[in-house]
């Protein structure tokens, strides 16, 4: 199989939601010494196609999530190779993303994570029920362009304010843009807690992220 064919089968595996095939294509790309940055680009272009089709209303959430899982299984292998070679992956920017403490809602956050990745961002998803200190630690470690927080409940929405305050107290607020979302969040609330942006949908989150880092 030529390098081109390996990359094409990697793209097809992501587009067919086949995590196993995606991982085995990624391993093959590594063993055949295909440039890992090109492999990462192939994966990203496949997920972008899926994301665009979702945006047009042709695909649905199960398609999006299935492709994202296939992407992850291949990308972890390719990223390890990129790190090993000391190469640099093309990315629009870095996002740290999590659902705040007291809130276990995962699906909306995962959708945003997938759409941002499909949109060309590098996303560090730090999970659900994340305490303030953990958000701070992730911001220190990954130095993201954007910190994104999700909260579904009226009582947990206040956690977002706490995290922004903690960033301020630690002199980190100016180093990162903050976007918030989730069922309990409104534009008005986002402004009140000092976030830089809010959007109600996962699709909208991509445009927002681009605006926040000045590319749109």
């Amino acid at each position: 199989m030529s390098a081109r064919e390996v990359l094409e089968s990697l793209r097809v595996a992501v587009k067919e939601y086949d995590s196993e095939a995606a991982a085995s294509c990624a391993k093959r790309a590594v063993s055949e010494k295909i440039n890992p940055v090109e492999a990462a680009n192939a994966i990203t272009s496949a997920i972008k196609e899926i994301g665009d089709a979702f945006g047009r209303g042709e695909l649905w959430l199960p398609d999006l999530v299935g492709a994202a899982a296939a992407m992850q299984s291949a990308m972890s292998i390719i990223e390890a190779e990129i790190v090993r070679q000391g190469a640099a992956k093309k990315s629009l920017g870095t996002v740290v993303l999590g659902t705040v403490h007291g809130d276990i809602h995962d699906i909306g956050k995962t959708m945003v994570s997938t759409m941002l990745t499909a949109g060309g961002f590098t996303v560090y998803d730090i999970g659900v029920n994340v305490i303030v200190e953990e958000f701070l630690r992730a911001v220190k470690e990954h130095k993201p362009d954007i910190l994104a927080m999700s909260a579904l409940l009226t009582t947990t929405a206040a956690e977002q304010r706490k995290i922004i305050q903690a960033l301020r107290q630690n002199g980190m607020r100016d180093k990162v843009k903050i976007m918030v979302g989730g069922g309990a969040i409104t534009e008005e609330f986002a402004r009140a807690i000092g976030a830089d942006g809010y959007d109600a949908t996962a699709l909208g989150a991509v445009g927002l992220a681009k605006r926040l880092i000045g590319i749109e």
Binding site: G57, W60, L61, P62, I107, G108, M111, G183, T201, A202
Partner: peptide, 8 residues
């Protein structure tokens, strides 16, 4: 049911 567009 989950709305398979918005996840809501």
């Amino acid at each position: 049911p989950m709305d398979m567009r918005s996840g809501h």
